[in-house]
Design a protein around this nucleic acid. Structure first.
Lengths: 218, 218
DNA sequence: AATATCCCTGTTGTATACAAAAAAGTTGAC
DNA sequence: GTCAACTTTTTTGTATACAACAGGGATATT
């Protein structure tokens, strides 16, 4: 299952948007991109169409594609949906999760903690995402899992800034442990509620996200 | 905001899959399609790529695209997610819905009933979908609304067969009214629970869906 | 007869060529 | 000098041409 060139290009353009090379509202010129990637316009167009479908760029027919970063309102909305989807995963997982997966969660949490000790933020992000990914899988619903992974990927850059909030790391780790405990006890309601507030943007997290958006816009 | 030719073609191909012209597993030949629609392969390819992203066809690189109807397990999974998304909509709507929207829901329900009286199933389907669409909108979360509409569209053909279950129409209408009542009283929990079981595939609905799938496969 | 290799055909993926529409630039009128 | 209409240029959307790969079948070898 090798991927096409246009798929690779789509991921690379996505990366360029995430790391700020292409900023919000900027027009993505097909010819320029085709020169940059040393291919013809065809695979570039296919890549851009894919990104347009995922919502990362807006495609105005006969006018071009433009980078489309979510504004504050849309971001809150997306986090709200993410929180609900993950809450559903947790609730379902509470009755469906396997013992092996519980161990996996604990091990991932341990690696998270280790990363915090080593101040290895990059590794922390990875392990944190892994923790959530395990939950998606243990929902026992592959479709739900895929949807969660899709949205997680889309929110990834913003979730990362969220974790930079002072003291958030420790709090986040504690919540992870609460989630695992709830799952062990099969308490779907508790697991669900905990992860919902774990993911949702509210209180101090809200203000932090807003200020992050402002500085990113300059 | 006019749409491109490839968008129109994508919708038409989608229709052809829904109405059974192209059956599950069938390979969609780019040249044949380009002849059928009297265009070149380019817009056909763009349409197929879009359908592949939405999950309606599977795209195996260098081998072609194949119609990919969800199997029983995936269908149940999709309905489970749909039920959860709609439950979330209802819970949020309970605190956010406007009086005007309540009236809209009641009016739509009335038209639903009228359609039942006239045995106008097509109109019933439309009004039913409209009822749910209003709920999505009144969640006050545009992103959630879009996700719901996307999944609703994908499940549309299967939801319709669901409603053919004997006595299901009357039961469905009663549930609609219960949902409206719960919203009027601002009882998010009740609205949420009611719509979850309204949408979910369980009990008798499960067997009905299974038998439908079997006959459709022949 | 069975199997492996090679060639041929068909199909996808990519590049290029062309058409149509929008944006930009220029000229002219007031 | 400003604004409007026309022309030029740029850019997207579509068609066609070409290249690379996969699949099938024929042939040859064991």
């Amino acid at each position: 299952m090798e991927q096409k060139r246009s798929d690779i290009i789509a991921n690379q353009i996505e990366e360029l948007i995430f790391d700020g090379t292409f900023s919000d509202g900027e027009r993505l010129d097909e010819v320029q991109l085709s020169e940059r990637f040393a291919v013809s316009r065809t695979p570039i167009r296919e890549a851009l169409l894919r990104l347009a479908q995922s919502g990362l760029v807006a495609h105005y027919p006969r006018r071009g594609v433009f980078v489309r970063q979510p504004g504050p309102i849309e971001l809150i909305e997306m986090f709200e949906v993410m929180a609900e989807l993950e809450a559903t995963c947790a609730r379902l997982a509470a009755t469906r999760i396997s013992d092996a997966a519980i161990d996996e969660l604990k091990a991932t949490n341990a690696r998270c903690n280790a990363a915090v000790q080593d101040s290895d933020t990059e590794r922390y992000y990875r392990e944190n995402e892994q923790f959530h990914a395990i939950l998606y899988r243990e929902s026992g619903n592959s479709f739900l899992e895929q949807e969660c992974l899709r949205l997680q990927r889309r929110l990834q850059p913003f979730r990362r800034t969220q974790l930079r909030l002072r003291g958030r790391l420790k709090q986040s780790m504690k919540e992870h442990e609460q989630i695992v405990s709830a799952l062990v006890e099969g308490d779907g309601q508790a697991a669900s509620d905990t992860i919902r507030s774990h993911v949702a943007v509210q209180g101090e997290k809200f203000h932090h996200l807003m200020s992050r958006l402002k500085t990113a816009a300059e």
